[in-house]
Design a protein around this nucleic acid. Sequence first.
DNA 1: ATGGCCGGAGAATCCGGA
Length: 274
Amino acid sequence: MRLVTWNVNSIRTRVDRVLAFLDRSQTDVLAIQETKCRDDQFPTAAFEAAGYEVAHFGLSQWNGVAIASRVGLDDVATHFPEQPGFAKAIIEDGPDPLLDVVPPIEARAIGATCGGVRVWSLYVPHGRALGDPHYTYKLAWLEALRTAAQTWAADGDAVALMGDWNVIPLDTDVYDVTAFEGKTHVSLPERAAFDAFGAAGYTELTRTFLPDEHIYTYWDYQQLAFPRNKGLRIDFCWASPALAGRASAAAIDRDERKGKGASDHVPVIVDLTD
DNA sequence: ATGGCCGGAGAATCCGGA
């Protein structure tokens, strides 16, 4: 079975390219991030015509996550247990007891069971800047996900946590780490939050099969980043113990960054034995 | 070749991205 994660940066703009990729790659399950649309705007019919069921969670033009599967799609969840919401005032000042406000959960996670694997499509908050409320939110979000993931692993579930993690785990996962001094994605707390999935028993499958340095999954649209190969490695697949042993290969489809109409991220592919 | 931001909203730029 072939699982793929891809931040498509607008599904409506990219749908032809995504469907062409699904056909060419013979992908069974696609975890999509940054669909940038509401559920009623998602091009579901086009996916169904290609033989895929789709579950999408999108609230506005921001974020948006989906799973497309041709091997079944059951028990859809639009957030993980204790997933924090984001509300700037609450994070800065604490909850207001007079308002009893609950921060709204953003469209950054969707889970479904596909071909016996619990697949999660995840769009980890960017963080914006060190010390920004969004950075605090990012760390809390990752910690809550790790807590949930630990429970799933303890239950013996076959889980794939796939998506845009917005963390650069190693200095060699970026073209020049000094360009990120004092910025998000490389800070110690972010890297610790990412590495905690390993401590929880999960295996990052792309690292297993693609251990080379300076392998990237994202290149900025600006300043000729792709032709100059100034990229980042930020898209990953953490596999639970029950799943990791089934992995047979991983690949990054760098060619998908070429040409007009490319997303700034490329597909990250994981193959499992049946 | 892989090329000098892009997408969405909505009417002028502005937000968010990393």
